[in-house]
Design a protein around this nucleic acid. Structure first.
Length: 561
RNA sequence: CGGGGCGUAGCGCAGCCUGGUAGCGCAACUGGUUUGGGACCAGUAGGUCGCGAGUUCGAAUCCCGCCGCCCCGACCA
């Protein structure tokens, strides 16, 4: 591709309001442009990257027997009513000119299950894996960070259809294998994490996480362990408790409402306090959740423990049922108490359910009854298997779910088993966001000059800079080299624009093609083309001009990350 | 949905407080000189100051309403 004929709208300055590296560089390098909040266009070079990711995904999906098809974005709303998903806030709703109710698909479980319900008749029709690359619409409450979280995006979504749980397990494992190959081939650093199955979930789920600064999720990492912080568990650092008391003793704490204030005033570590967090469930239960003073309640884990959604109790409710906010505790209350498992035996400081008063020496079991649960968030300093955990932000680049019969039952997708009995198809769903792969690659590889694409995702294989002006001998030589490389099937971006070399180098480093060749007057004098590897901006041995140049460049390409 | 901020030329911004003919840098265009790390000289062109309604002799500037966009939080199969 000749740069003078291409559209690569690079910018010298970052968009004023961009924070994420991938947002800044995606725009500056001319890969993406914004149309509205959460609505992004892919410019030609950016679309090349996206298509590279898509092709890698397609390869590996095909390799596990996936069958590519295409389903529409606009669906009858009725279909979504049948699965109970038509009232989701994120679902775009619309009407046609006749007033018929339609939705923009956020995923395609409904559509694919609808079709398979008509097509599959017998156990002989199973198993199947179907997938497509299709636009999703999601009315996100807060789109952010360029293409990381948008209201419209392309997703590879795959669906497996099996006779039973064992079949689903096999399909699930195939996808785990394919996903590992996909993310490795894309050159990403990534982790497979146990994840929350979510409100609409099934029986198991994994997320694929690419660590990077702009990540929206926190991942807990230890040797042999990776989990979303929403579900992660770890061993807490032990706390040194004060000597026990025969019974709780009141301690005056006037105006001291925070853990830090109370701990400081009483001369104990924050972990020697118990924090009380009263919640009311949608089902009408009231529960007092207790965690160590230096820990925090994890609302996702708590919801899983409660088995239903909940809201924190209001201050009015707390005053009416426990005591003044800031001074509540477990002693003397009738409310059901859940105690976090990190609370070791011993005497703690808790609220006394009276204004300006706490209790010392409160012992779980002796002074109040409880049920032990795991509802705290993993904290820095926690350990797993003796190793201190790392907590890193990460982008979710893919996920896999065991759906079971969540969709096949309401949509009556059944088959006859070998005994002639009607059974619901057992399903899985498997998503990957190519745009997030691109964004994660930018985040993970960028340096102060720009992007440094993994070879597999780069919009071009070689960036050839002509350092001579039009009509010069060096320009004629670079024209000739461009023709040679292109004839050999190498994907070359050829910068033959009539501008200074500094600007060309700057654009090349911004765009991040892994191999940069420079051919100018020096090359004609030395007989060598200069070579820079983009990752780390390393100068590589020059390539001799002449017939061997193409083979030499191919050799260099093979060695790149 | 709460909190904060922004909207002036393609991009980045100043001007607004204290009303009086709309500016700067980069980019663009023309001519010339340059050509190995974002050159230089001379000239040119480009703006309903987000939209609407007010106050005023006069509004980018003050008041009211609306829209759009960003960040934080809530939210997020």
């Amino acid at each position: 591709m000749r740069m003078s004929e291409y559209l690569l709208p690079t910018e010298r300055e970052a968009p004023a309001d961009a924070e994420a590296i991938s947002h800044v560089l995606g725009v500056r390098a001319g890969l993406v442009r914004q149309l509205g909040t959460g609505l992004w266009s892919w410019m030609p070079a950016g679309w090349r990257v996206h298509q590279r990711a898509v092709q890698i995904i397609r390869d590996e999906m095909d390799a596990i027997g996936g069958l590519e098809l295409l389903m529409p974005v606009i669906h009858p709303r009725e279909l979504w009513k049948r699965t109970g998903r038509d009232e989701i806030d994120e679902l775009f709703k619309l009407q046609d000119r006749k007033g018929s109710e339609l939705v923009l698909a956020m995923t395609h479980e409904e559509a694919v299950t609808f079709h398979m319900s008509q097509i599959v008749r017998s156990y002989r029709d199973l198993p199947k894996i179907l997938y497509h690359f299709q636009t999703k619409g999601r009315d996100e409450p807060r789109p952010r960070a360029g293409v990381l979280r948008t209201r419209e995006f392309i997703m590879k979504d795959a669906y497996s259809f099996d006779r039973d749980a064992a079949g689903l397990d096999a399909s699930y494992e195939k996808h785990r294998g394919a996903y590992a190959k996909i993310f490795d081939r894309c050159g990403l650093e990534w982790f497979e994490c146990a994840s929350d199955v979510g409100m609409m979930g099934g029986t198991a789920a994994h997320e694929y996480m690419a660590p990077c600064p702009a990540g929206e999720n926190d991942v807990v990492l230890a040797p042999g362990y990776a989990a979303n912080i929403e579900v992660a568990g770890a061993d807490a650092q032990p706390v040194v408790l004060p000597a026990g008391l025969a019974a709780p003793v009141e301690a005056s704490t006037p105006g001291l409402m925070t853990v830090e204030q109370v701990a400081g005033s009483l001369g104990v570590p924050a972990g020697a306090l118990l924090k009380a967090y009263p919640v009311l469930t949608d089902g009408g239960r009231s529960v007092l959740v207790m965690v160590r003073g230096d820990h925090r309640v994890n609302e996702v884990k708590l919801q899983n423990v409660l088995g239903e959604p909940f809201r924190p109790a209001t201050e009015e409710w707390i005053s009416a049922h426990l005591g003044p906010a800031g001074f509540i505790g477990p002693v003397g209350t009738e409310i059901e108490i859940l105690l976090d498992g990190a609370v070791q035996a011993g005497g703690y400081v808790t609220g006394a359910n009276r204004a300006d008063m706490h209790l010392r020496g409160v012992e779980p079991g002796r002074d109040f009854a409880f049920k032990t649960v795991d509802v705290r968030s993993v904290e820095p300093g926690d350990t797993i298997g003796g190793s201190v955990v790392r907590i890193e932000p990460a982008i979710e680049i893919g996920n896999i779910f065991k759906l079971g019969t969540r969709y096949s039952e309401p949509l009556r997708a059944t088959f006859l088993d070998d005994g002639g009995n009607e059974q619901a198809i057992v399903m899985g769903s498997y998503g990957i966001g190519p745009a997030r792969i691109a964004a994660a690659a930018i985040e993970q590889t960028a340096d102060e000059k720009g992007i440094a694409w993994p070879r597999a995702l780069s919009p071009f294989e070689v960036h050839l800079v002509s350092a001579g002006k039009a009509g010069s001998d060096e320009r004629a030589a670079s024209d000739s080299l461009y023709a040679q490389l292109t004839a050999a099937g190498i994907d070359v971006l050829y910068d033959e624009r009539d501008m200074g070399p500094g600007q060309k180098f700057a654009d090349a480093e911004l765009l991040g093609v892994p191999l940069r060749l420079t051919l100018g007057r020096r090359s004609l004098e030395s007989g060598e083309i200069e070579v820079q590897g983009r990752r780390g901006r390393v100068e590589l041995p020059g390539v001799a001009l002449g017939d061997g140049a193409v083979a030499a460049v191919q050799g260099l390409l093979a060695d790149l990350p």
